[in-house]
């Protein structure tokens, strides 16, 4: 794939990721999505946080910034507002985005600022040796939950939806034959507003080893088995989703409508793709209306 290689910084290869890690798959799909959109490298900025995923900026030949733990979205907000013509992509891990950076995450979603956030969700803190993350499934073993996790996890996609992101999608590194991840990333990049693509990815070194999930291939099959595309949801659940989101039914009613077969499944697909006022655009409109107002006032006084 010569095209992909042309987007990588040769001097930064080989990258720091372990054999079998899912991060490379996400980076490859990001590159292909950018390439197919026809954007030049100069107009793309990739901003990473801290953690395994945070190393993404080093290897990509874009305008790149490797920031502090959890703050990538806040840095990116500054970059985007100061230079709205840049396409700004943020690469975060699940811990970076929903643990230490949880506050910045919900507020970036709320503002609906035109950033694309890719969350590399491997279910634990990989770079520090596999500790509990806010996304670690119940019962899973990590370096700090040796006998199984008792902390209920976050659902990052649902968190983004609740916080106001206007594009929310979730996929996995498994079975990318229909190029779902690339499609999602491409839609997210082209979307005007805050877009999240959460990618469930394998960490064979820690999650796999500590939970007896076998080699990377076996981990990918686990991802396949644990997820369920939104399209395959029973009709009743779609209705439930719509109703809950429209707040037309009580939670009591909704609870009674949950089908049994969904227990333990993680939904994948596009949860939301809506056109809503985007922050940099709204800010520019505010600037213009104030300037017009001041001009008129000045003319009126004169």
């Amino acid at each position: 794939m010569p095209r992909v290689e042309s987007y990588l910084r040769g001097e930064e290869l080989p990258h720091v990721w372990c054999a079998g890690c899912g991060n490379g798959t996400i980076v490859r799909e990001l590159i292909q999505a950018v390439d197919q959109l026809g954007w030049s490298k100069d107009e793309v900025a990739v901003i990473g946080g801290i953690g395994c995923s945070g190393r993404t900026p080093f290897i990509l030949d874009f305008n790149t910034m490797h920031t502090t733990h959890g703050r990538a979205l806040a840095f990116a907000t500054g970059v985007k507002l100061a230079r709205p013509e840049l396409h700004v992509v943020v690469a975060s891990g699940d811990g970076d985005a929903s643990g230490i950076g949880g506050n910045h995450f919900i507020h970036a979603c709320r503002r609906n600022i035109d950033l694309t956030l890719l969350v590399f969700n491997n279910g634990l803190y990989g770079q520090t040796g596999g500790q509990l993350a806010p996304t670690t499934p119940m019962g899973a073993r990590t370096a700090t939950t040796r006998t199984g996790n008792i902390d209920p996890p976050f659902d990052i996609a649902q968190l983004a939806l609740a916080a106001g992101a206007s594009f929310v999608a979730r996929t996995t590194t498994f079975d990318n034959q229909d190029q779902e991840m690339k499609r999602f990333i491409q839609l997210a990049l082209a979307h005007r507003g805050f877009s999240l693509v959460e990618v469930l990815c394998q960490c064979p070194t820690y999650f796999g080893r500590m939970n007896g999930l076998g080699d990377p291939h076996e981990m990918l099959f686990h991802l396949r088995d644990e997820t369920l595309p939104l399209e395959e949801l029973p009709e009743v659940l779609h209705r439930w989703e719509e109703q809950v989101r429209a707040q037309t039914v009580s939670l009591e009613q909704a609870k009674g409508m949950l089908p049994e077969e969904l227990a333990g499944k993680i939904l994948t697909g596009i949860f939301c793709n809506e056109d809503r006022p985007e922050y940099t655009q709204s800010y520019q409109e505010l600037q213009q209306s104030l300037q017009t107002h001041d001009k008129q006032e000045k003319a009126g006084v004169a």
Binding site: T68, A74, G78
Partner: peptide
């Protein structure tokens, strides 16, 4: 964090 990002922009 935002002002540092903006400074680099």
């Amino acid at each position: 964090s935002a002002i540092i990002g903006a400074a680099w922009a």
